[in-house]
């Protein structure tokens, strides 16, 4: 029973981070029709920046905010320097068909991932680093009993919940949020309404960069920092996004929590070695049985 509760708590905190990763993927997918495989490379980079600042003696929160800013800037750069030129040329030559227009941005994002990982390796070497937590990460002991979670776990849950609330309010209550939704749903009508969709897209990339950097900052204390550590998180986030339907923001969040719990259960009750096999089986089942995501109603989308 105790193991079960611990597992559920672990699943929820990890799930919260996966939800952020999935959210970042879905933001760019909705805004630009691209799945950004470099996303966690960007997060790795901004987490290294934060780690360096902390090592140099700056405070956690200063480093935290700078990392988020670096995440936003990297996101915008990826769009402006790579994806925008790519889509501008997308009617010529090799890119002149739908299948290649879907495929080539994937390849470009892998190129970006390679560049970021190599740069990180050059700048920070391959040394694995730990990453501090802003609050204690030993189990809290209310009333003298050991609870199945730490203060840092609670911190993660609170930060992610706040992020989700802010994101929801941004999309529902602000003009820019409306512009982003309109651009994602129908770019042509959005343009005819005077929305500058390429700016809106760059903003999607930037916000996605913030979300994934946040995920990087929250997951790294439990996973050590190296140029490749966050790759696996991306795969989980991708699966979470697909579970949520890939174009639904709330769906991606729920997908993140489902994946968190699934992985925690596999880790504890089966074997950590089988996590990726389970992930593959789960992903294939979702894609075959519910291609529009677990929450798709009647509308079935062609994936």
């Amino acid at each position: 029973m105790n193991t079960l509760i611990t597992t559920l708590f672990l699943g929820t905190t990890r799930g919260a981070v996966f939800a952020l990763v999935a959210l970042g993927l879905v933001l760019v997918w909705r805004g630009a029709g691209i799945v950004n495989f470099a996303q966690m490379g960007q997060a790795m980079f901004s987490t290294y920046v934060a780690s360096t600042l902390i090592i140099k003696g700056y405070g956690y929160w200063f480093a935290f905010l700078i990392a988020l800013a670096v995440g936003a800037i990297l996101g915008a750069i990826v769009d402006l320097a790579v994806m925008r030129p790519l889509t501008r040329r997308s009617h010529a030559g090799v890119l002149a068909s739908d299948s290649m227009r879907a495929t080539v941005p994937v390849i470009a994002s892998l190129g970006i991932l390679g560049v970021l990982q190599s740069l990180a390796g050059m700048i920070w070497a391959a040394e694995e680093r730990g990453f501090p937590t802003p609050v204690s990460d030993v189990a809290v002991k209310p009333f003298g009993k050991t609870a199945p979670f730490t203060k840092f776990d609670l911190f993660i849950i609170v930060v992610v919940a706040l992020t989700l609330v802010v994101t929801t309010l941004f999309f529902k209550k602000t003009g820019m949020g409306l512009a982003m939704r309109a651009t994602a749903l129908n770019p042509e009508v959005a343009r005819l309404s005077g929305i500058r969709i390429s700016r809106v897209r760059t903003l999607s990339w930037a916000i996605s960069g913030v979300a994934s950097s946040l995920a990087g900052l929250l997951i790294t204390p439990s996973a050590n920092l190296s140029p490749n550590t966050l790759d696996l998180i991306l795969i989980v986030g991708f699966t979470a996004a697909v579970v949520g339907g890939l174009d639904s923001l709330p769906g991606s969040v729920v997908g993140g929590f489902i994946l968190g719990l699934l992985i925690a259960v596999i880790n504890v009750y089966v074997s950590p070695d089988d996590v990726f096999l389970a992930l593959l089986v789960f992903l294939l089942l979702v894609l075959i049985l519910k291609p529009g995501g677990l929450f798709a109603s009647k509308k079935v989308r062609n994936v």
Binding site: W29, F37, P105, T239, L246, L279, L280
Partner: peptide, 15 residues
């Protein structure tokens, strides 16, 4: 298609 296939095959490569 495209990104779905890329992601799925990437998970396969890991699994």
């Amino acid at each position: 298609t495209g990104p779905y296939l890329a992601g799925t095959t990437l998970v396969l490569a890991l699994a």
